[in-house]
């Protein structure tokens, strides 16, 4: 088990270093950092001094090491667009994206799993067929179109929900939260539905097919023969055994949620990291892009690691497998 964790950690660090190399290459060689920092009338000599002082004349490996060390400390340099420290810009926008992603993931799990269980238990019921067809359309509709439709119905025609922004927020230190004000909660509804809908349909279809599979197995028949209640069979035996693939997909999709938050945030003018990233792409603001890339890579790698470790917590069979593998000196 310990060997497994250490090996996975080493892999994660390797991926992060590879992404770090890409980010460093962007940061250092796309556009000139000096040009972005100084005015037109700076002499060549002053530029050279600055270059020397910033360490831009050092060998590339040394610069890369500096870049990684600074990144770990959250120092990503200054934005080309606003001349603010990139670290602070991202930190200001982190809470908005995190809260949106959290609510969207919660929504997709809390609605998707029951819907999947229902359609898996009663596949011939008319409501299951309706849900199946709706989920197919849901998969094909682009995220931004769902957002626009929701705005059209709930903000333009009905006028009951806001179409942009976070509403009022409460500050806790550097973290701003929309969870504690009425307008903040109202502003969360449409964006999180937009962001969570794709994940919802995915989770529903997954739970459904897993449930159909599990319900055919012998241990379910045996549990019924023991006279257990339907509830105990459906949830205690069947649902529990569908959880491993659901955790995998849900975990990996959490990364997808962060990526597609870019689209949702643009539709709803949500002041998060995704919106910042789109703006920085439009203005070719390389330091922000490099920092965002590193941050997202970190999230993805952390999530993948957590998902792998969760397997062993959820599925006792794997733990047994690990033990025998370890005994064989694998």
């Amino acid at each position: 088990m310990l060997i497994f964790i250490l090996r996975r950690l080493a892999q994660s660090v390797a991926v992060l270093l590879a992404v770090g190399l890409v980010a460093f290459t962007l940061f250092r060689y796309v556009g000139d950092p000096i040009n972005a920092m100084v005015g037109q009338d700076t002499s060549i000599q002053e530029r050279e001094e600055l270059r020397e002082r910033l360490g831009l004349n050092d060998p590339a490996p040394v610069q890369f090491a500096h870049f990684i060390i600074n990144s770990v400390q959250g120092k990503f340099g200054l934005s080309y667009r606003t001349s603010e420290p990139v670290g602070r810009m991202i930190l200001e926008r982190l809470p908005a994206t995190m809260e949106l992603a959290f609510v969207a993931a919660l929504f997709s799990l809390c609605v998707g799993v029951p819907m999947g269980v229902w359609t898996g238990l009663y596949p011939r019921h008319w409501s299951s067929r309706v849900l199946q067809a709706a989920s197919l359309i849901g998969v094909s509709l682009p995220t931004f179109l769902i957002g626009i439709l929701l705005i059209l119905v709930f903000a333009v025609i009905l006028g009951v929900l806001p179409s942009f922004g976070r509403g009022d927020t409460v500050a806790f230190g550097w973290w701003t939260s929309g969870f504690f004000t009425f307008s903040g909660l109202k502003a969360l509804i449409l964006p999180s539905i937009t962001l969570g809908l794709f994940q919802l349909t995915l989770i529903m279809r997954l739970v459904r097919s897993e449930m159909l599979e599990v319900m055919r197995t012998d241990y379910i028949k045996f549990a019924r023969a023991r006279g257990l209640t339907n509830r105990a069979v459906n949830f205690g035996h069947a649902l529990k055994n569908t959880l491993v693939p659901v955790i995998t997909i849900a975990g990996l999709q959490l990364g997808g949620i962060i990526a597609f938050a870019i689209v949702t945030e643009t539709v709803f003018s949500w002041p998060g990291m995704g919106q910042l990233f789109v703006q920085s792409v439009q203005f070719a603001d390389i330091p922000v892009m490099a920092a965002y890339l590193l941050l997202v890579a970190f999230f993805f790698v952390a999530i993948n690691l957590a998902v792998d470790l969760l397997y062993y917590a959820v599925d006792p069979r794997l733990r047994g497998g690990m033990a025998t593998q370890a005994a064989r000196g694998h």
Binding site: L26, A259, F260, I262, V281, I286, L293, A297, F300
Partner: peptide, 16 residues
Amino acid sequence: TFPALLVALLIDGVVR
């Protein structure tokens, strides 16, 4: 590890 959308956005930004 990254969604295709993110990769495409990044490439577009670099070209810009």
